[in-house]
């Protein structure tokens, strides 16, 4: 499968990464090489093989419904780039 520069631009936008035309060109080459490697997978016979999302076939443990967290706002917001009145600030959100 070959990847076009327009594909790279599209996925870069989806991933919220800014790429210049020049970067997109180089990335198209890189990603094509990687996809050539990945395409070896197509040779594998996988009919009837269940996809494996986790290395262990374990089941989720469930927590009891208790409140264990206390208010840590000050500590957690000490690393925030922009806060005011306890809120994280971002450029205006338009719905």
């Amino acid at each position: 499968m070959s990847i076009q520069q327009s594909d790279v631009e599209k996925i870069a936008h989806l991933a919220r990464l800014e790429v210049s035309a020049e970067q997109a060109q180089r990335l198209t080459k890189d990603l094509s090489n990687i996809l050539d490697l990945v395409d070896q997978l197509q040779a594998a016979k996988t009919d009837g093989i269940a996809p494996m999302a986790h290395p262990m076939d374990a089941e989720q443990r469930l927590r009891a419904d208790t409140v264990t967290e206390t208010n840590q706002r000050d500590a957690l917001q000490s690393v925030a780039p922009a806060v005011e009145n306890g809120l994280y600030l971002v450029p205006k959100v338009i719905e």
Binding site: V38, A44, M52
Partner: peptide, 12 residues
């Protein structure tokens, strides 16, 4: 073609 296939190969 990619993700599902890779997870199947992972099981193999």
């Amino acid at each position: 073609a990619y993700y599902r296939k890779a997870q199947q190969v992972r099981r193999l």
